[in-house]
Design a protein around this nucleic acid. Structure first.
Lengths: 151, 151
DNA sequence: ATAATTCCTATAAATTTATGTTGAAATATT
DNA sequence: AATATTTCAACATAAATTTATAGGAATTAT
């Protein structure tokens, strides 16, 4: 119905990946590894990481031994920030951001509907942090491991 | 952040337009008029109306004097149905519909996040009917008219 | 017959998604 | 200090998808 772009999906997974390494050692993570672990093309990841860097969600370290790290603790990065950085806007429809986008706003009944849905989403992503996603992920990994062993 | 496609937006406006005429006289509405009223290309509307017809949300009447009408009363058409018809799936991400889409589901923390957001949206659009949208629209039009007169 | 309308197919334009190539900067090693 | 290596940075291009336009065939009322 409403689709999250690959930029949003891949970028979020990149952030979760950085968060996992940040937690362990805070060493820079190289995109090549993220690409392999997540099964995403390096070249594409390189493009996706740019807006994350511009919006100060990640830091880059150039040269040998370099890579990327989170700019702050995972618990201090809201999912909303990540998505906003990656997708630019935070709205289901353009007219919510830019009123001049459509001159029918004054009489359009769908405007309020899309606004309601957008508010729901914003609220949801505002309350979730990268740490929350990492916790869910860790939990699933632990569960998968346990199941594997018990066989 | 998450963008509703033009298909979804235009298609919903088409449905609201049909609902307005359905209420008044239940005569078939020709796409040419909808296109003019909504400022959308006829040719594009012709493509958008197809899935609405397939999913039995509108009825078509061919030939001269023909056009489109709602297949049922606006109060009996859920917004969710319209969006599902237009966008195919009802999920923010593909893996919620088709588990084989990504083999990382078992350990992916973002899966639960997108699922939560999708559930919110589904719930929201499940409870809204086309009649609700029409009512909001009518209200806005009345308010705009009143303001115009009082000048 | 004629005009009006949906229906069907093709294609063009724009945007998103993804890959390839080269270069620049920082670091480690000698 | 010089060199080689590692990595990000930038630009170009290709593939896929979405968005939009175009032409004409089928159907129906008049």
């Amino acid at each position: 119905m409403i689709k999250l772009s690959t930029k949003g999906r891949y970028g979020t997974r990149l952030m979760v990946n950085l968060a996992r390494h940040y937690k362990n050692s805070n060493e820079a993570v190289i995109l090549k590894n993220v690409a392999e672990e997540e099964g995403i093309s390096i070249r594409y990841l390189e493009q996706i990481v740019i807006p994350l860097k511009i919006n100060k969600l990640v830091k880059s370290i150039r040269g040998a031994g370099g890579g990327y790290t989170l700019a702050r603790k995972a618990s201090e990065i809201k999912l909303c920030e990540i998505l906003q950085a990656l997708e630019g806007s935070c709205s289901l429809v353009e007219c919510l951001e830019d009123e001049s986008f459509c001159e029918k706003i004054k009489t359009c009944g769908t405007y309020e509907i899309w606004k309601g849905a957008t508010d729901l989403l914003k609220n949801y992503f505002e309350r979730l942090t990268l740490q929350n996603v990492l916790d869910i992920s860790d939990k699933k990994i632990a569960a998968a491991k346990k199941k594997g062993k018990s066989k």
